[in-house]
Amino acid sequence: MADSEQGLGRKILSFFIKEGTDPAQPAPVNEKPKEVVPAAPSPTVPNVAGTANVDRKFVQHFVELLEKANLPGPDYFEYKQALQSMEGLGLGEEKQFQAAWASFKAMGGAKDTSVLKTSADQYLGILDKDRAAFLKDVEKAIGDRVGSLQQEHKKLEESNITFAQQIADLQKKIDDNKNRLGQIAGEITEQSAKINVNKDNFEVTYQSFVEQIKSDLNQINKYLK
């Protein structure tokens, strides 16, 4: 790829990501500067298609990946550079692609579009291989991080089931104790009544014997002097 004022990585970045580059306008000298609250930096930049947000760290990753994989000689990237230079000329999409192709051939590129297709497919293959490796790492991360959390989640659920059963068992014991307490209260009343009746009968019988013996003693004292 031909050298330019911009580095290769910056050039690749500009092909796929459009960022605001307008410099901040200085405040007039005589005007009192306004207090500006700095905004939190956004971790993403808008996608060229405007359909989603592109994560900054992945943007940098792909730029570095394609920079290292840049093929020697004019190829898809040189054509992409030429295509980008057509923006702002008021040309329709078809005209832009055709004009970029003419510019590409003029810089010493191939005479047919096969080099564009071949090199673009190579870059796609590099990106696909990187994606496959990334997804593999994602699966491993899920296994390492999420898997341990899932195991903890399962253990906590099992513990809760065990605790719930223990609570149910304790509640049953409490209910059984309450029922028994009610029975005991009735039995206390019943047994107390029986004991008191037996006590009364004992006292009556006792008094009978005592009175009988005392009566006999009185009679003995009276008649056997």
Rank of each mutant, 00 (worst) to 15 (best):
S114G: 01
E67N: 05
A102I: 09
A52N: 10
Q60F: 05
K68A: 11
A40L: 10
K105D: 01
Q25N: 11
E93P: 00
A27M: 08
L89H: 12
F62Y: 15
G73Y: 04
G90K: 12
A106Q: 14
F97V: 08
V59N: 03
L89T: 07
T44F: 13
T21L: 14
A39R: 15
P72N: 08
V36N: 06
N30P: 01
R56N: 09
V37D: 05
F97R: 14
V63F: 05
P23I: 09
L66H: 01
A102F: 06
G88W: 11
T44K: 10
S85D: 13
S103G: 01
A82T: 06
V37Q: 12
V54W: 04
F104S: 02
A24Q: 02
P28N: 00
Y79G: 08
P41Q: 05
S85C: 05
G108Y: 05
T51K: 08
V45A: 12
K111S: 11
K111N: 13
E94I: 08
M86V: 07
G50F: 02
F77N: 07
A40P: 01
F104N: 04
G88P: 00
Q96D: 04
D75G: 15
D22Y: 03
K57W: 14
M86F: 00
T21R: 13
G109Y: 12
Q84G: 15
F58N: 07
K105P: 00
D22H: 02
F97I: 07
L65C: 05
P38E: 09
G109T: 08
N70D: 07
E67C: 11
P38V: 04
A27H: 07
K111D: 15
G88D: 02
A40F: 10
L83N: 12
A39Q: 14
H61Q: 09
S114T: 14
K32F: 12
E64W: 03
P26F: 10
S103C: 02
T44R: 09
L91I: 05
K34I: 03
Q25P: 03
Q84C: 04
P26I: 11
